[in-house]
Amino acid sequence: MKYFVASGEDRRLTAETRQAMPGSFIELSDGVTHYELTGPEDGDVVVMAGGLTIPLFYWDSLVTELNARGLRTLTCSAYGRGFSDRVRARYDESLFARQLAELTDRLGLTARPLHLVGTSMGALVAMTYAAQRPASVSTLTLVGPAGLTKPRPTSPHRLLRNDRLAGLVARRRGLQILKGHLGHNVRDPDLGAELTEMVLDAFRYEGSLYAVFDTLQHLPVAGRGDLFRQTGALGIPTLLLWGAEDQVTPLAHLDTARTLLKPQHHQVIAECGHMAPFERPRDVADQIAPFVAARTERLDS
């Protein structure tokens, strides 16, 4: 799909505009990445991979909870999201996994295995990263993972394979589709409004809608059973979390995920939609922290 700037994208990300932005920035091989590394310097490092649209601010409440439990956290905005570069490259899982690999390497965080968390589409990125660098991953936590629906002839991914059609849909209806997607993510209307405001603010930067629709073209979010099966065969201790009222990756896929991943532990979070780290950060931290601690104790013993 040819790069485009959509109506309403009235801001540009430059070195000058980033000077007033919170967090840190680093130049990687594909572009500039916006990240935050917080928490006790001697804590185990938890690295988070986000979904289709979310910036790193999505993780703020979970970060606070994990830092309070003695864990160090690394969050970043994937390329095309938040304040990271809108790159003119193929937005596929290889791009996002490479971004995480380069970021952790450049920040010197790979001396000990990392604890990797992926939510929704970010779960596919996390599994790709784990497959490429299994020795560097101590635990894997997947939250409401995408990838287990069956591909349909009318699925957005298949329809958007045509570059001309993808560009037309993205320009004319992209923002409307994005708002509709965000409206199904969160159970609580107030949190949903907060999430929508957060995401749409970052979508004022040039190239944002292009990035999302190019991702939909090149990163399949259905029919990924082989990736789940491959991940389960890696032997990495895995925690599987799911919102009980998830409308995006329905709870009906939980049993399939368990069969393929063979997780050490799974938990359904009550009164929660698709975005458990955002909706129920304390409940998610209550699951992640002891899971990480148990693995660390085994490695240290």
Rank of each mutant, 00 (worst) to 15 (best):
Y205F: 13
L241Q: 08
A202K: 15
Q230P: 14
L209A: 05
E206W: 07
F203M: 11
L216E: 01
R229F: 08
G232S: 05
S208R: 09
A233I: 13
L234V: 05
L234N: 13
P237N: 04
L240H: 02
W242S: 11
A233P: 07
Y210R: 08
Q230F: 09
G235H: 03
F228S: 01
F228Q: 00
Q217P: 04
V199W: 15
G232K: 04
H218D: 10
Q217H: 11
G235C: 12
G235N: 03
F228H: 00
L200D: 06
V221P: 06
T215Y: 03
G207E: 09
V221D: 09
L241S: 09
I236K: 03
A211R: 03
G207W: 07
E206Y: 14
T238W: 04
L209G: 02
L227Q: 04
G232I: 04
T231K: 01
R229H: 14
G235A: 08
G232V: 07
S208V: 10
L240F: 08
F228K: 00
A211P: 08
L209F: 10
T215L: 06
Y205C: 08
E206D: 14
S208Q: 11
A233T: 13
P237Q: 05
P220N: 03
F203H: 12
L227P: 00
A222I: 11
L239M: 09
R224G: 00
